[in-house]
């Protein structure tokens, strides 16, 4: 059985994600093969909030080279979770 923390890997804290917070949207890096329902449940479980909607997208890992060797960072999945208006907000900045 996957625990919610296995699905939600870490929050993403950037200018853009901070801006989204004003729309009640919170951004996470999630497990690559997690689906929207799993993400919704995990977020509700961890933060005790109500999720209205989940947007997901697959992010391609960047191609990096080290001299003549090229490599590739792992692909990952980003999830933007929209909370219901009556839900409490997420304070996930502790322990970044």
């Amino acid at each position: 059985m996957l625990s919610p923390h296995d699905i939600i890997i870490k929050p993403i804290v950037t200018e853009k994600s901070m801006d989204d917070m004003s729309e009640n949207k919170y951004t996470f890096k999630v497990k690559k093969d997690a689906n929207k329902i799993q993400i919704k449940n995990a977020v509700e479980n961890i933060f005790g909030v109500k999720v209205e909607k989940v947007f997901t997208m697959n992010m391609n890992g960047k191609v990096k080279r080290m001299g003549k060797y090229t490599g590739r960072r792992a692909n990952w999945k980003k999830a933007i979770v929209k909370l219901t208006p009556d839900s409490k907000s997420i304070e996930f900045f502790e322990g970044i």
Binding site: I12, V13, T14, E15, S17, M18, F93
Partner: peptide
Amino acid sequence: GFRKGKAPQKI
């Protein structure tokens, strides 16, 4: 994740 001067106070 933030441009210089754009990081929020909290962060």
